[in-house]
Amino acid sequence: MYFPGLDIILSILYLILLIEEGKHTARRLDNPGKQGLIAIIWQMPGLLFVVSIITELDHLTELAYYFIFMLELWHTPIIPLVSLLPAGTFLDKPLYYYALFLMVPLLAILFYLPALKLKQNN
């Protein structure tokens, strides 16, 4: 049993739900600062992996090899969309590798944007 493309549909649905949650939170909190903080705390595990890998702090532990694994698993809901990137490389790394890093701030921003929009409208 295999439904080609179902993973992509679910991934898009995840992003739609994320924006809806962002709108809902913006209406309830009416506080962009707090919503920004929620977005950062929500993506904190991913952020810690990204910072550790970029600064090579992960090499201080015996788990260095697993940090990038964990970052990829952390991003599981949007992995289908990342997999649509072309199979090129940049500086010896595949393009999706960089996307894993970028997804942390992008997801946080996606959740935060409705708060900013609501503030502008008010």
């Binding site: 694994f69 698993l73 992995i79 997999s83 990137l85 199979a87």
Partner: peptide, 18 residues
């Protein structure tokens, strides 16, 4: 022909994107 494509540790056998 699939060089540069995505590695995902728990990739199911079906599909050809990861």
């Amino acid at each position: 022909a699939h060089q540069g494509e995505m590695f995902y540790p728990v990739a199911f056998k079906s599909g050809e994107r990861y």
